[in-house]
């Protein structure tokens, strides 16, 4: 069996394990999703004007995504560090880049589900309207942004996992790094929603930025994850 094949199997095993834990505990559905929804409601209270809400809906969707992502990442590494599971995997000689890819994949699935919910909330609560092309663009934006966010989140989440005070450290480390995703994804989503008179075609260059970000952190993450979590 080639090392690539081995790595792929380990990565899928890790991802399946994370998603099974998630499926059985239902933290995402019962706690994180309501949290994300209440953020959207609170934004509406803070910006009490329908015209403004429609205009800034893309930015709010992505801000809510970032905040909920912090919770999800902490959760995904809490299950690892609670019983020293990550250390056990490393001691067992499991390739760290395979662990990285596996955990990123699981995170991608969870984030994508969250983002779909948030876009749905924006459509219902903020009165956003999309054309069919706009909808397709929104889906592509969600997918590319999710890959980048999941890779960065796994990388920095792993770093903060073994440490005391990680709850406060993760946002400080992660939010500056994901600023390009917030910028790119918000502009692309504005184009998809047509907010502020933006055209659908204006979104594609921003999606390219998101894709570049995703590729860079997928590659760098698989290299740097091992040294970062190795204790």
């Amino acid at each position: 069996m080639s090392t690539f094949e081995q790595r792929r199997r380990v990565a899928f095993a890790v991802a399946r394990k994370d998603l099974t834990i998630e499926w059985n505990s239902r933290i995402l559905v019962n706690q994180v999703a309501p949290f994300a929804a209440i953020i959207m409601v609170l934004f509406a209270f803070a910006l009490d004007n329908e015209g403004i809400l429609q205009r800034v809906a893309p930015g709010l969707v992505w801000l809510a995504t970032l905040f909920s992502m912090l919770v999800v990442i902490q959760r995904t590494f809490a299950v690892e560090s609670a019983d020293g599971a990550l250390d056990a995997l490393r001691v067992a000689g499991v390739d760290p880049s395979a662990i990285f890819i596996g955990k990123s994949l699981a995170l991608m699935v969870q984030l994508f589900a969250l983002e779909l919910l948030l876009v749905g909330t924006a459509v219902v609560l903020y009165g956003v309207e999309m054309s069919l092309v706009g909808f397709a663009e929104a889906i592509v934006t969600l997918l590319t942004a999710t890959v980048g966010l999941a890779c960065v989140g796994t990388l920095y989440g792993g770093l903060a996992a073994g440490a005391r005070g990680r709850e406060t450290l993760l946002p400080l480390l992660l939010l500056p790094v994901v600023a390009p995703v917030l910028i790119g994804a918000t502009r692309a989503t504005e184009a998809a929603f047509g907010s502020g008179g933006a055209q659908v075609s204006e979104g594609w260059p921003w999606i390219l930025l998101l894709a570049v970000f995703a590729v860079i952190f997928a590659v760098v993450g698989s290299v740097a994850f091992g040294p970062l979590v190795d204790e």
Binding site: L155, V177, A179, P180, I183, F213, I216, V220, P227, L228
Partner: peptide, 22 residues
């Protein structure tokens, strides 16, 4: 030493990306 060294190298990667997107 190892944690912070890796992080410092990640920062070198992150800063041009942030600057470019800003």
């Amino acid at each position: 030493a190892r944690r912070s060294a890796v992080l410092a190298l990640l920062a070198i990667l992150e800063i041009p990306l942030v600057h470019f997107s800003v």
